[in-house]
Simulated assay, not measured.
Amino acid sequence: MKKTREVVTALGLGLVVMAGSLAAQTVPLKDVAEVRNGIIYVGMAYEISEQCDSISARIFRGIGFLQSLKNRARALGYSGEEIDDYVNDPEEKRRLEQIARDQLAALGVIKGQPATYCAVGRAQMDAGTRVGWLLR
């Protein structure tokens, strides 16, 4: 009886995990906020580091963070091919870059004015945001 209960419990848990994976795949990866926003944060940090000479990107931290996003997508049931298709889609890449730039502008960045990138970068680091965590 105890063994039967354990088997039923294990099967039930397996079905719940499978159902979660199948449900996640019905949503395009670009609509998974956790993954999409993570990529945008990396883009924002990169843009700040490219425009502000006194702030650098934490390269290894950024790579690790991107890998964690990939692992999360896999845990949600997306295949390696689906993930690669998403991150290599040029239209999606342009869309995410524009979102990152719009968010930077909302924070006070003015294109062509490096000091504004530095100010926003320092503010992000001081506030301990994900973008700030990716900078030094």
Rank of each mutant, 00 (worst) to 15 (best):
R36H: 09
E34Y: 08
A33S: 12
S79E: 05
I55H: 00
A45R: 00
Y46L: 14
A100F: 05
D126F: 07
V131E: 03
V131H: 02
A57L: 11
F65K: 06
E81I: 08
V42R: 02
G121D: 00
V16R: 05
G108M: 06
R130E: 12
A19L: 11
R58A: 01
K93Q: 13
G43A: 05
G112I: 05
V87L: 08
G62S: 08
I63V: 15
Q113G: 08
V16A: 11
Q51T: 08
G132T: 01
R36A: 11
R95F: 09
A24E: 02
L29C: 04
L15D: 09
G62Q: 06
A45Y: 00
Q67N: 15
E6G: 06
Y41K: 06
P90F: 01
G43T: 04
A24P: 02
L76K: 04
R5Q: 14
E81T: 09
Q124K: 07
L107M: 13
E82F: 02
V109G: 03
G121S: 03
A105E: 14
C118A: 09
R61Q: 13
I63A: 13
I83F: 07
R61L: 10
E50Q: 13
G62M: 05
E34Q: 12
P28F: 04
V27Y: 08
K111A: 15
I59N: 08
K30I: 10
R58N: 03
Y78T: 02
G77W: 00
C52M: 02
G64P: 06
P28G: 04
T4H: 13
N37E: 11
R61V: 12
I110R: 13
A123S: 14
G112C: 06
S21T: 07
S56K: 06
A123E: 12
D53R: 05
A105Q: 13
S79F: 01
L134S: 02
T4S: 15
V131K: 00
A100E: 07
C52V: 01
I39D: 05
E47A: 11
I39N: 03
N71G: 09
S49L: 02
D89K: 00
A23V: 11
T4M: 14
E50S: 12
C118S: 07
Q103N: 13
I55T: 00
G12L: 06
E34P: 03
A106H: 10
M18C: 12
Y46A: 14
R36T: 11
Y46E: 14
S49Y: 00
R130T: 15
M125F: 02
R94V: 15
T26E: 15
R94S: 15
A115V: 12
D126I: 10
V16E: 06
G77E: 01
L76G: 02
A75P: 02
I99G: 05
